[in-house]
Design a binder for these strands. Structure first.
Length: 443
RNA sequence: GACCCCAUCGUCCAGAGGUCAGGACACCAGGUUUUCAUCCUGGAAACACGGGUUCGAGUCCCGUUGGGGUCGCCA
């Protein structure tokens, strides 16, 4: 019984908040670090919200993040009889009484009597916490409609599961005094407690429904990698102490300790998460990223051949930092319909002397024997030299003409992937458009 | 209002009485790159305030201010 057992005990709703999932991460890390067990309890006693779909959402989120549990999950709703039986025992032992609390006329409920002494405990992150008896009030453990209340169910299930360390959100500290009294009245050992500070939004305020980007599913949909989110969340309120930030699961497990947990709330910083996601992204082989990129492209009405996408990813290198940026950054590889940066166009294409040069280049590339990055580059430079223009002028113009944007991968690698047909077609189209514009200006 | 908790660069963390208060993200400047991203170099940037304790305080104590949590027959 000296084995450490932690648990994550969410009440399933359709959404899993990042604050909650971070609690799960800390429980998981602590269990894995100590060689203990990480358990899952689903507190599904709220009939309205705890739908099967909500439970599925929760489990999916945990699986996505790799938060595996070591024993079959306990569904709190299945424990009702046990909860009620325990309430009877508390009644019998005099720890609880039946009464119409507050005289509501709703009938009798079961009220737990606080022991009347001060209660204190050593919180693993906040230190010694104490509450005077006068500030501790009796509370309902079974409602007049016969339903067990959270406090009772929670404590009883922790006993049932043999939980040794309760790691939960800061918002539970006040409950802990009552829970400790309950454990004692029930004759069960009191677990150790660790209360994690809350995560607040960019404004430093507690998260509310109005805040976007706060549900685990939204991060996944947006293309954030599970490992990146896990790593980022683990670092919110905890650090290994030696400055390491990008860490593997193994490294985090090895370094994790509740001593290193911050007692003050942490602000969620999307920018840093995005940076971290980029770091994880670039370490991923293209083959492994394929699905994520494909999903974004399809969501934007593009459906490229995987082999072609692979070549595109190759030339894009680490420019795409989150899956959801894929279509925006690579559309021109898969479709002739892509936006054109008007300001850049004016600056690099609609310039005197550029059009004839582009036209000459198009003629030479049309007759090129070999369509490779190296030969294309050689031909462009030769052309520029002969026309006595800086190669950069042509390079920029061609880039705009074939991709519509001034930013992107190395031009020649890009041209090679684009292929001769598309490049010549777009060059032609660009020349046409540019001369039409300049003609109208002249007239 | 009562009870409790918290307080180091803009943000996340280091700092367990003696450090030029360190790192990361973001930001700014320069370099590399045909562009962008990457990469490299450099820079600006913090101990909330006031009292103590101490030879010495970001570190300990008290107060102030500011932020947060809880005060349900919700979980």
């Amino acid at each position: 019984m000296s084995e450490i057992r932690t648990r994550f005990a969410p009440s399933p709703t359709g959404h899993v908040h990042i604050g909650n999932i971070r609690v799960a991460i800390f429980n998981w890390l602590f269990a894995r670090h100590t060689g203990g067990r990480f358990l899952l309890r689903i507190e599904d006693t709220d009939q309205q919200r705890s739908t099967p779909a909500a439970c599925r959402t929760l489990i999916e989120a945990m699986e996505w993040l790799g938060l595996n549990w070591d024993e079959p999950p306990l569904y709190q709703s299945a424990r009702r009889e046990a909860h009620l039986a325990a309430a009877e025992r508390l009644l019998a032992s005099g720890h609880a009484v039946r009464e119409d609390k507050g005289g509501t006329g709703r009938g009798e409920c079961i009220v737990f009597r606080m022991p009347g002494c001060d209660i204190e405990f050593d919180d693993l992150v906040k230190g010694r916490l104490r509450k005077a008896a006068a500030d501790l009030k009796d509370f309902v453990i079974v409602r007049s409609d016969g339903h067990p209340v959270f406090h009772l169910a929670n404590v009883l299930d922790d006993i049932e599961m043999g939980v040794t360390h309760v790691i939960r959100g800061d918002d539970h500290v006040e409950n802990t005094f009552r829970h400790i009294a309950l454990f004692r009245a029930l004759g069960a050992p009191v677990p150790r407690y660790a209360h994690l500070p809350m995560i607040v939004n960019a404004q430093g305020k507690p998260y509310s429904k109005r805040d976007g980007d706060a549900y685990v599913g939204e991060f996944r949909d947006r293309g954030i990698l599970a490992d990146a989110l896990f790593n980022y969340l683990a670092l919110l309120g905890w650090s290994p102490g030696d400055g390491r930030e990008l860490m593997t699961r193994t490294e985090m497990i090895e370094a994790f300790s509740l001593d290193g947990v911050q007692a003050s709330p942490a602000r969620f910083d999307m920018t840093k998460l995005l940076w971290m996601n980029g770091e994880y992204m670039r370490r991923l082989p293209p083959m492994e990223r394929l699905d994520g990129h494909l999903r974004d492209l399809r969501a934007h009405g593009l459906d490229p051949d995987p082999a072609e996408l692979l070549r595109v990813l190759e030339v894009m290198q680490d420019r795409i930092k989150v899956f959801s940026d894929t279509a925006a950054q690579t559309r021109y590889f898969f479709s002739d319909e892509y936006p054109v940066d008007a300001a850049a166009w004016r600056k690099r294409v609609a310039r005197p002397g550029v059009l004839p040069a582009l036209d000459e280049l198009r003629r030479r590339w049309a007759e090129a024997g070999e369509w490779s990055a190296a030969s294309l580059e050689a031909m462009l430079k030769a052309t520029a030299a002969e026309l006595q223009r800086p190669a950069a002028d042509l390079i920029h113009a061609v880039r705009l003409a074939v991709s519509g944007t001034p930013a992107g991968p190395g031009l020649f690698a890009m041209l090679e992937v684009l292929g001769r047909d598309r490049v010549l077609r777009r060059l032609g189209r660009a020349i046409e458009r540019a001369s039409a514009v300049s003609a109208s200006h002249d007239g």
